[in-house]
């Protein structure tokens, strides 16, 4: 095993180009577990800790450019307003020690269906900034996850940042685990209301081979909200609409039975979380809308 320590991003890209099998390591919270438990013996470890740009973020007009290694703790503390869904998701990651080290880049690189950030990214809308010596590209989050622990990166590419749309409405995130802290998701659900486009986006974790959106549920809800004039009148969403939305979210799952939970439970729980997060976000939207009208 060789340990590569690039001092700059350019050096890192060069190293990855020269050694495409090199495994990037930043927070180490996935890679080191695999090494400690003898599940993996990479030829090269590519340490990204010296590249300080990766732990920085920029808040732009429409989106946040989040460095791949910004620790979850920083996201929770500093980006709650811009990225509420991801901030909530970050808070559910493992433990304080892990949140101090791990970041979204690692979650994307590992691309485990159980990664906590994925549902929030899917719901908010995001693009992954991947780069190699050949150049840089933005991969839409919907095209990023290609299979169980597989993603759209080329062998010579590294994740530099994630561009996440700033929240234009309420976002929520829920995760089921069999413990009240420090737990890997049995399943997870992210929901974002986008009042500007009058759309709703979802993200489901740990309930299919990859993180997925519940597109049929989104389409149903977009239509129902539109038809009922809900975005304007701010009425409470009827229980039958919420139920059908929840059912469609559950139907979007393609889960398995494993030691963490049954497929049947996962489908059930995603439905419950979909209904609850819809209620929470919509209540929040109604509150904000009413408030705005009052001021106007």
């Amino acid at each position: 095993m060789d340990f590569l320590r690039p001092a700059s991003w350019e050096e890192a890209l060069a190293a990855k180009a020269e050694h495409p099998t090199a495994v990037p390591i930043a927070g180490g919270t996935d890679v080191m577990v695999e090494i400690n438990f003898d599940h993996r013996r990479p030829e090269y470890l590519l340490d990204l800790n010296r590249i300080t740009d990766l732990t920085e973020w920029e808040v732009g007009q429409d989106s946040v450019r989040l460095g791949a290694s910004v620790p979850y703790t920083r996201i929770m503390e500093n980006l709650r307003a811009e990225l509420p869904g991801l901030a909530l998701a970050s808070h559910t990651v493992a433990s304080p020690q892990i949140r101090n080290r791990g970041g979204v880049g690692g979650n994307l690189g590992t691309a485990s269906p159980a990664g906590d950030a994925h549902p929030a990214l899917l719901a908010a809308g995001a693009e992954v900034e991947a780069e190699s010596v050949r150049g840089s590209r933005l991969i839409p989050i919907d095209e990023f996850y290609t299979g169980v622990k597989r993603n759209a990166l080329a062998p010579d590419e590294l994740i530099r940042a994630v561009h996440i749309k700033k929240a234009d409405g309420p976002q929520q995130y829920s995760k089921v685990g069999t413990r009240n802290a420090m737990v890997i998701a049995v399943c997870a659900f992210g929901l974002a209301l986008h009042p500007e486009t009058r759309t709703v986006r979802t993200g489901i974790g740990s309930a299919a081979p990859t993180p997925v959106r519940a597109k049929a549920a989104e389409e149903f809800l977009n239509a129902a909200l539109d038809e009922g004039g809900f975005w304007d009148n701010g009425k409470i969403i009827t229980p039958s609409v919420a139920k059908q939305f929840a059912d469609l979210c559950a139907a979007a799952c393609n889960p398995i039975d494993d030691v963490r939970g049954t497929a049947s439970y996962r489908r059930h729980a995603v439905g419950i979380m979909a209904r609850r997060t819809l209620t929470w976000t919509w209540e929040s939207y109604r509150g904000t809308a009413a408030h705005t009208e009052g001021v106007a």
Binding site: L88, H91, T92, Q172, Y173, S174, K175, V176, G177, R179, N180, A181, V183, M273, R276, W280
Partner: peptide, 8 residues
């Protein structure tokens, strides 16, 4: 559910 934010 604790920190996982599953119920209010």
């Amino acid at each position: 559910g604790g920190l996982s934010n599953t119920t209010h």
